[in-house]
Design a binder for these strands. Structure first.
Lengths: 194, 194
DNA sequence: GTCTATAGGGCGATAGAC
DNA sequence: GTCTATCGCCCTATAGAC
């Protein structure tokens, strides 16, 4: 008879690799269900490991969530920094395009959106405010947007988050889809029929 | 000995009154904790009744949440309609002011914000999309805003929601508070020092 | 109209083995 | 580095009395 694939006794992944993979799975699950709606068990299944191991790696579900939103912030700020150099007059357009590009993985903006709604939580709320202020200060100080430019930019970003959270592409009514297209419109590819 | 206040055998409130009061309590609790984070027990204590009675009145926690977001939408659309008549050029300013006035009770915008993040939920997500589209259509059809005006208006509204969700007034950093002041600024009262 | 009691299920975290 | 097993809590919903 064929033997079952033997249980390896050597670690299949290093600690760092496993941690990174689990973080990615957690980001997706938190994106879809929010902090309270997500379960460590679902994250574990998504990552292909046991529930107990998820908790053991990160200590608590709360710390795991904090790690996820920290990662989201890093992704966003990294992409923003890459989009900075260039013509000043189109800087905020480049930043906006970078933000929308990141929306291709739901695991970036949506965990942050959930965190932004949790201001009353003593731990997560404080982290969420700190993260939001970090983004705001980047826009004002590093990207050198004027205050009202920065406000408008962030407002548009929050609308992007909302459209993602709503899964607006599922809606039967065309009005929502049209708005989503206007807001999320990507630089048209070369095939632009006219 | 003094007798304890005797248990009344007559109902203390009519069904409609009790329902209304419970709905208000639920709105506050869902605002603070979100759908999954809120418990029917906490809503009950806030409303001064038993947990079982909350469930009995609304059937399930999910139906209670749907009732709350339906009520939020009604509040918003009612206030918007009251703000419509008047000079056309300042219409969107009046609508914005009405939106911000409603932000004085957290129970209006925040339950909706939480719903807007739950697009993957088959029941609540569908209701959230329908509600969002209703708001959008109001702006386009009844308030007759141009599409890009409507987009900007909604974006600003989502930023207002975010600042409320974050409880930005709790943040130690002045940058966030300054943004919140710019965005939430109300029509200055007569005492405008200069 | 409203309560108490409780069933029933799920979840985070810990213990301990390999 | 990773698993299985399990404890103990919390939470929604139901049953049934007044």
């Amino acid at each position: 008879m064929d033997k079952q694939a033997p249980r390896q006794t050597v670690p299949r992944l290093s600690a760092a690799e496993r941690r990174q993979e689990t973080l990615g799975a957690a980001a997706e699950v938190f994106a879809q269900h929010g902090y309270h709606g997500a379960t460590t068990d679902r994250i574990a299944r998504e990552a292909g490991i046991s529930q107990a191991y998820v908790v053991r790696m990160f200590g608590t579900k709360e710390q795991l969530f904090l790690a996820v939103i920290g990662q989201s912030l890093d992704f966003i700020l990294d992409e923003f920094r890459k989009a900075l150099p260039g013509d000043e007059s189109s800087r905020s357009e480049r930043l906006g395009a970078a933000y929308i590009r990141l929306a291709e993985q739901r695991g970036v903006h949506l965990p942050l959106m959930h965190a932004f709604a949790m201001g009353s939580d003593p731990v997560i709320g404080a982290a969420a405010r700190a993260g939001f202020v970090r983004l705001l200060k980047f826009l004002l100080e590093e990207a050198e947007l004027a205050p009202d430019e920065a406000d408008g930019f962030i407002a548009r970003g929050m609308l992007v988050n909302t459209l993602m959270g709503l899964r607006m592409e599922m809606d039967p009514d065309p009005a929502g889809n049209q708005l989503a297209e206007r807001v999320l419109r990507k630089p048209r590819p070369a095939t632009h029929a006219r």
